[in-house]
Design a protein around this nucleic acid. Sequence first.
DNA 1: AGTCTAGAATTGGTCAGACCACTTAAGCCC
DNA 2: GGGCTTAAGTGGTCTGACCAATTCTAGACT
Lengths: 244, 244
Amino acid sequence: MAEKKKSTGQAIFEDLQQKIISGEYAAGTNLPSERDLVGALGVSRSAVREALQRLAQSKLVTINHGGGTKVNDYQETGGLDLLNKLFNNKSISFDLQIFRSLMEMRSALAVDAARLAATRRSEEDKQLIQSIFEGMKQAQSSTELQKRTIEYWDAIINASENIAYKLSMNTLKENYSYFERFGENFSIKNYKFVYYEQLTQAIANKHHVKAEQAAKTVVERDARQLVNVLELAGKFPELDKQSS
Amino acid sequence: MAEKKKSTGQAIFEDLQQKIISGEYAAGTNLPSERDLVGALGVSRSAVREALQRLAQSKLVTINHGGGTKVNDYQETGGLDLLNKLFNNKSISFDLQIFRSLMEMRSALAVDAARLAATRRSEEDKQLIQSIFEGMKQAQSSTELQKRTIEYWDAIINASENIAYKLSMNTLKENYSYFERFGENFSIKNYKFVYYEQLTQAIANKHHVKAEQAAKTVVERDARQLVNVLELAGKFPELDKQSS
DNA sequence: AGTCTAGAATTGGTCAGACCACTTAAGCCC
DNA sequence: GGGCTTAAGTGGTCTGACCAATTCTAGACT
C-alpha cells in the first residue's frame, strides 16, 4: 500500500541498472540501440530515452551521438548513490561487505565531523546539539531514540561546516534507513549515554581532541550494537561465526 | 577544441541545475510546468523532459505525476556529485569553503582506507602498492608524480575493500582534477618520500596503527602543499590572511 | 594487395502533436 | 460549511517523422 506506481521510464531505468550491476550488460560493451530496446521492451522510444538519460546521469553508461551507448564499469565511475542498488544483487557475503563499508564510512565521517564541529561550532550549534542530546535521554522508544540520534549527528555535521560530509551523509542515510526496521529489536532500557555526554561536552568546550576521541568511542559502540541487532534479526548469521 | 557540443537536453539540465543551486528557483517552490518551459526555452517537450529526468535523478527536484515538479533543497537531498557544480556559483570565500570540505573528506577517507588496507591487503595489493611507490620516487615531472600519487591511493582504496570509499573517491577525483592544472607550479626537486615510505612499510607489515598515523601525516603534508601551490597561483589569496 | 574515400547504414538527438493518468482547484449541491 | 462532481492543469506515454554524428562498406585508385 505504500508502493507508488512506477512510471515506465523509471521501471526501465531500474531494470537496465540492475542488469548493468549484475553484469548481464558487461562493462565496455554497448547497450542495445534505442530502437532495439523499444522493440524488446515494447515501450515508446521516449520512455527508453528518459531511462538512458538517467543511466548516463548516474555515470553507469556513456552515450555517444551516433556511436552507441557504452556500459561503464560502475566500480570505476559510479557515485555513492549506487550503494543502495548493490544490496541483494550478489551473495549474502557481498551484502555483508557492503554493509560493513557503509558503517565504516559513516563512522569515519562522523568522527571527523565531530572533530571539526568542536572547533567550528557556533553558539547556536552548541545549544542545538545540547538540546537534542537532552531529547535523546528522554526518548521513550527505540524508534524515537533512533530518530533523535540521527538528528544529533545531523547537527554535528552542520556544525562541522563541511558540505561534502553533509552531501555524503544524505546518501548514506538513504541506505541505513534500510536497517531501521530492525531497530525494534533493540532495547533502550539500559542504554548508556555517558559517551554521548562526553562528546556533547567536548564540542561545547571546543575541545577537538576529546571530541574526536569521544566520537570514535560512540561510533564503535553503536556499530557493534547494530551488528548485534542484525544478528538477532537473523540477517547476517555468518557475521562472526563462519559456517558454524 | 576539447569542448564537446552539448545536446539540448544536457544544456537545459545544466541551466536549470545552476538556477536551482543559485536559488533562482527556490527550494520548496514548483518549477514551471513542462509546457511553460517549452515555451520559454523554445525547445521540444522531449528535450525538457529528459533534462527534468536528470534533475530528478540527482535529487534536485521531485516530480509528481499531475502535481508539478518541486524544487528540493540540494543541501538536504543532493549527493556528493553536486560538489562540482557548487564552485563559482557564489562568492570566492564560498569556493574556499567547498575546497576545504573536499580536502578534509579526501583526507579522512584516505586515512581510514590506509588503516583498513593495513589489515586487509592481499599479497597482490602489497606488491602493487610497493611497485607504485617505486614509480613515485622515480617520477621525472610534477605531473607524473601527481599521476602516480593518485594511482597509489587508488591501490590503497582497493586494498581497503571498502566499496563506499571507492565510489566516493570516484566523485572526489572528478573534483580535484580541477586543481591539477595548478600542479605545474609545484617542484619535485626536494620532495620528501619518507612519509610515503613509512606508510608503504606499515601496510606491508599489516601494522594498522602505524599505517593510520603515517597516512595522517602524509595527507596533512600534501594538503598543506596544495594550498601553497594554489596561493602561488593566486587562487585563494585570502586563505590564511584575511583581507591583508 | 593495400589504402583511401564517398556513400550507405546505424545510432543517437530533436521535434510535433495527440492522447492517457493523476492531482488540484473550482463550482455546485445539500 | 461540508462534501461531491467536474473541469482545468500537469506530468506520462506513444507515434512517426526528420536531423546529426558515427561507423561500416563497397568501390576506386595506386
